[in-house]
Computed example of a mutant assay.
Amino acid sequence: MKPLLFKIAKTNEEAVRILQEDYPYFYDKWHYHVETQIMVIVEGEGTYFIGDAIGHFKAGDIFILGSNLPHFFRSEQQYYQGLSTLHSKNISVLFALESMGERMLDLPEFFAVRKLLERSKRGLMLEGDMRKKMFDAAHVMAGKEGLERIIYLFDQLHSLSISNELRALSHVNFEPGPLPSDTKKINGVIRFIMENFSKEITVSDAANVANLSIQAFCRYFKLHTRKTFSQFLNEIRIGHACKLLIEDGYSKKEIAFQSGYDNISYFNRQFKQITSLTPSEYARAHRINHNQAS
């Protein structure tokens, strides 16, 4: 996609900025910024789009979003309802170490941190004990100011740089090239998909939203998302199915139907292709992980 450049407002005194946001839903426009962002989900759930990665997020999840990495977080549909009392809260730590000194990252002491920042340009998701540690650390950092905050950030970056509990998300590095008209168009298509994926959607429907012919839309969509329309739609649907499998109480047929599939065999094939597991294997693996974490 061609994302919108998002400029982080900050004062000259802030080398490290903390944003504590509490809104009905997360900022859901495809964008990027030069600052590296550590984003801690405090409350809320939905679907993340990070580079070419799509997945489900929930409270407690933590992401490291590298400089100029396109991303956005789309809250579940119920968060957009007019009378909803749901909240979407996050703590974000934003910083650009390069602005603290051109040669700093060339120092031997910053070698591991420099590698971490390079890896973060594909998007990283924290796992295991590191996720709990950083969740607590973000709250502590929010209470610090000035030099204390910078020193504390360096300490956390050091811990992250030597951790093996970071999972890369995007398969490729994205080169941002913002065009506001393109951003508005692709965001409109994504919004249409997110609001209608449980129904029958055709490429013609999506092309109409973008006001393009089917042939032009297919080229446009692949260029901007690096996925075909059907790949993108299936990943959204299977991501929703994963969420329902975790919640329990649904039969496989109900999950398939609520995720936009009326053919169980096709649902099973797509699920295995995207997750490398069958729905039953996925649910079982989640139960095992959940019990181990308890």
Rank of each mutant, 00 (worst) to 15 (best):
P3L: 04
L5P: 03
L5H: 08
I8Q: 09
K10G: 05
E14A: 06
E14W: 11
E14G: 07
A15E: 13
R17Q: 13
I18V: 15
I18A: 02
L19W: 11
Q20K: 15
D22T: 08
D22S: 14
Y25I: 02
Y25L: 04
D28S: 15
K29Y: 10
H33K: 07
V34L: 05
E35V: 04
M39Q: 13
V42I: 14
G44P: 05
E45T: 04
G46F: 11
Y48K: 05
A53N: 08
I54A: 03
I54P: 00
H56I: 10
G60R: 08
I62C: 14
G66Q: 07
P70I: 05
P70L: 04
H71M: 08
H71A: 02
H71N: 12
Q77K: 12
Q77W: 02
Q78N: 07
Y80R: 03
G82C: 05
S84I: 10
T85K: 13
T85S: 11
S88P: 03
K89H: 04
K89F: 05
I91D: 11
I91T: 14
F95T: 06
A96H: 14
S99I: 08
R103Y: 07
M104N: 05
L105C: 02
L107M: 12
P108M: 06
F111C: 06
F111T: 13
A112K: 14
V113C: 01
V113G: 01
L116K: 03
S120A: 13
K121D: 03
R122E: 02
L126I: 00
L126Q: 09
R131C: 06
K132P: 00
K133C: 08
F135E: 15
A138C: 15
H139T: 08
M141V: 11
A142Y: 06
G146E: 05
G146M: 02
R149Y: 07
I150F: 15
I151Y: 12
I151N: 12
F154S: 01
Q156M: 15
Q156N: 13
L157C: 03
S159I: 11
L160P: 06
S161Q: 02
L169F: 01
L169V: 01
N173Q: 14
P180D: 08
K185C: 10
N187M: 06
N187T: 06
G188S: 10
V189P: 03
I190N: 11
F192L: 07
F197D: 02
F197Y: 14
E200F: 09
E200D: 09
V203P: 03
D205R: 11
A206R: 08
A206T: 09
N208W: 03
I214C: 13
C218L: 14
K222I: 06
L223T: 14
L223Q: 15
H224D: 09
T225K: 12
R226S: 12
T228L: 01
L233A: 12
E235D: 02
R237V: 00
G239N: 14
H240I: 00
E247A: 14
E247D: 12
D248T: 09
Y250F: 14
K252I: 10
E254Q: 15
I255W: 02
F257G: 01
Q258P: 01
I264T: 04
S265M: 04
F267T: 07
Q270D: 09
K272G: 00
Q273G: 04
P279F: 01
E281Y: 00
E281F: 00
A283E: 00
A285C: 04
H286E: 07
Q292V: 11
